[in-house]
């Protein structure tokens, strides 16, 4: 047998274009359970199919320059699937289903050469699938990073309680990165609103560790440099105990049991008194 070009599967695909594309599409479609229309899928698949069969003698290395166009298509597919929220399996099937489609086609033929070509195609499709998966994974990471960032932004609700008094109600788990972002937002709010008093309410915070306590302390010191005073309110008994057990110096931070106590203190410091009219 004379040596065949590495991508002799190209003729195999070309000869059965009208059968492979629908078969490929239907295998993919079955896994996606109606989340994409048949025509969308057919378009995607036709593009990749045409990219695969675009030229002869391009070898078996998908990283070769000859496959630049194909790789771009596949990378785009990986990114799109990641953004659409498809699972890794669902994304991978888009490419690997080609093998199923071609194999179904060959089942009715007793053609050794075609099976040999299929073996090569199979290796090539594996490489292609892995390549798509890389772009899928990195696109997913980007999505996750963006979500984490927008969550951080969501979780910095600095609210104005009174003229010159702002409050930062903290809820959930405070890690070092989040505490830092939140504290920067608080200091900026003090300057932007011209407030001399800040209340950091940690009623909704599950736990405070040494690092978070350090950040709280630093924020109080930084606020003082700006010309503002902080009060920390809503320290739960367990947190008070941890703080003491960890030996964290909280001495420099003014604390109050509840947000309303802190509010009262901040108002008094602003020269205001709350009087009952009853």
């Amino acid at each position: 047998m004379s040596s065949q070009p590495e991508n002799d599967w190209i003729d195999l695909l070309r000869d059965s274009r009208d059968e492979v594309i629908p078969a490929w599409t239907s295998v993919v479609e079955a896994t996606l359970a109606g989340r994409m229309t048949t025509s969308e899928l057919t378009n995607d698949i036709r593009e990749i199919f045409d990219g695969l069969t675009a030229g002869d003698g391009r070898g078996s290395d998908i990283r070769a320059a000859a496959y630049d166009g194909l790789r771009a298509l596949v990378a785009d597919l990986g990114r799109t699937r990641a953004r659409q929220g498809f699972s890794p399996t669902e994304a991978a099937v888009s490419i690997f289903a080609l093998k199923t489609a071609v194999l179904e086609l060959l089942e009715n033929r007793a053609d050794l050469a075609a099976y040999q070509a299929f073996a090569k195609l199979s290796r090539f499709v594996d490489d292609l699938g892995l390549y798509m998966f890389e772009t899928y994974a990195s696109a997913r990471e980007t999505v996750i990073a963006q979500q984490a960032e927008s969550l951080l932004e969501l979780s910095t609700p600095v609210v104005k309680l009174w003229d010159g008094i702002v409050a930062l109600p903290l809820v959930g788990t405070l890690d070092s990165a989040r505490t830092q972002v939140v504290m920067e937002a608080l200091l900026q709010a003090l300057v932007d609103t011209g407030s001399e008093h800040a209340i950091i309410d940690i009623t909704g915070v599950a736990a405070v560790d040494t690092q978070v306590a350090q950040h709280l302390l630093k924020t109080v010191q930084a606020a003082r440099l700006l010309g503002a005073e902080c009060i920390v309110s809503g320290i739960r008994p367990q947190i008070a105990q941890t703080v003491v057990a960890l030996g964290i110096e909280f001495g420099d931070i003014h604390t109050k049991a509840s947000l309303s106590d802190a509010m009262l203190l901040a108002m008094r410091r602003s020269g205001l008194d709350v009087v009952s009219r009853a």
């Binding site: 920067e184 300057v191 930084a222 440099l225 700006l226």
Partner: peptide, 23 residues
């Protein structure tokens, strides 16, 4: 004082104790 400057000073270990501040 700008917030970023204040944060940096505290990290550096300078709290300017004895200096009064205003917004």
């Amino acid at each position: 004082m700008q917030p970023a400057v204040a944060i940096t000073l505290v990290e550096l270990g300078l709290t300017l104790s004895g200096v009064r501040t205003a917004l």
